[in-house]
Design a protein around this nucleic acid. Structure first.
Lengths: 244, 244
DNA sequence: CGTGGTAGCGTGGTCCGACCACAAACGCGA
DNA sequence: TCGCGTTTGTGGTCGGACCACGCTACCACG
């Protein structure tokens, strides 16, 4: 079944053509797409339409483009869903298509699943070295709040990547990107930041400890309290002073 | 004339401009973007570059475009993440960026979270009417396998939507789209389809029953067995005849 | 005065041709 | 043989042109 939807627009024809070749295995990651001019001639559309389709493919993390000549130039098929997912989430949050609360709830679900997988999988010790290194880096007292939060995000992402599930890792990266602005802004409202920071450190260690101990129940409750606790702390205070 | 920061490409400048206006609340869903020609003049880029940016926004489900004149024409900001997520997943699976196994594992995690939320939330009875109606529709014996699977997908999506989490609903729609071809093709390999169909029906009823009974543990195990059981059944048999 | 049809206008959609910057491959000359 | 300029091909951008569409407003006719 081809993807023949309402391909009324020329650029959709190009997109469908590339997707068909992708599905059929005619082109695979690492391969180069035909040049824009050649693709335009093959499909009987203008180069502008081809470019619009390639732009979509690029935004979805399916191809990367490079100027010049040689094997590294042109549109090369890749498969990097992380940035695309992050962009999608960030833009949707910007347009209020995704409420922050829903993203946090989704994080709860996904990260609970991550630690559950980690507890039941085997040989996770070496896969968690990255997470451990990040926790050590977060022990530095010279970190700003923003730097700490960046390491925090990297830690959670490292957990997801340690589970070996690329889809979950990409989704978590997207979720994080969607609420990054919210989390950063909320941190600035925390009165006693050093206290919160120390609590987060301890909670991180506790999560990893539970994972190493294969204690799924403890890991689940700890990651849940960790995430929900932070967002409960940075939720804007109910102020009666100005509904305008 | 405009000083370029990291957005070396013109269309990225347009994208950044629109995103900034989105974040600042200057434009919100329902509003119209300036016309392509006006936007090009404002930002000092060509209309082609503006169009490429709008194409990305459209692919991400942030705007919809319409020809003609009047209030319904032009690029109108919307927020429909479902189709964008589905397209992203489908394309990534096509490019083998997302293994099917990872998508199934992610479904397990997310749908387990969905039923968990449904068990703890209040007043879910009316929100589950859609799911119940789908189950009734699936009781028809005149359905083809493809039709049954379509209703199956709709049922799972209805569960996610009943949880009220737009992010999870969009993600589940995307996950389903990514493995739709795989699930359909696998169904054709099932020897005793009526038997599998009846089993799926019973499992669906069992899931809903557990949700209504607020039995989170039962709902969790039943949705897990339901999903993993189906994909275990359609896993391709090891065959040596593979064409290179 | 009311009504219906039509011309106008602005929109996105598409195509074309041109030029630029870039990078690799080529080829000529030292 | 080596080095460096030239050629070639790529994406990136721009401007212009035309089309189909759909609303708007106007004008002619009843």
């Amino acid at each position: 079944m081809t993807i023949v939807k309402g391909d009324s627009r020329a650029w959709q024809q190009v997109l469908a053509h590339v997707e068909t070749q992708l599905l059929g295995g005619d082109v695979r990651p690492g391969d180069r797409l035909p040049s824009e001019r050649a693709l335009a001639e093959q499909l009987g559309v203008s180069r502008s339409s081809v470019r619009e389709a390639i732009r979509v493919l690029e935004a979805f993390g399916l191809v990367r483009t490079a100027t010049g000549s040689g094997p590294n130039a042109g549109a090369i098929v890749i498969a990097t869903p992380g940035t695309a997912m992050s962009t999608l989430m960030r833009l949707q949050v910007s347009a209020t298509g995704f409420p922050v609360a829903d993203i946090v709830r989704t994080r709860l679900v996904i990260e609970a699943g991550v630690v559950g997988d980690l507890c039941t999988s085997h040989g996770t010790s070496d896969q968690l070295t990255e997470a451990n290194a990040l926790l050590d880096a977060m022990d530095s007292d010279t970190l700003s709040a923003a730097e700490f939060l960046a390491l925090d995000a990297a830690f959670h992402l490292a957990l997801a990547e340690a589970s070996g599930n690329t889809v979950i890792a990409a989704m978590l990266a997207g979720l994080r990107a969607g609420i990054e602005a919210y989390a950063s802004e909320g941190a600035s409202r925390i009165a006693d930041w050093p206290r919160t920071r120390d609590r987060l450190r301890a909670e991180h260690r506790g999560i990893l400890t539970a994972v190493h101990a294969r204690d799924a129940a403890a890991a689940h409750s700890r990651i849940h309290d960790h995430i929900s606790g932070y967002y409960a702390e940075i939720v804007p205070p109910t102020r009666n002073e100005g509904p305008n």
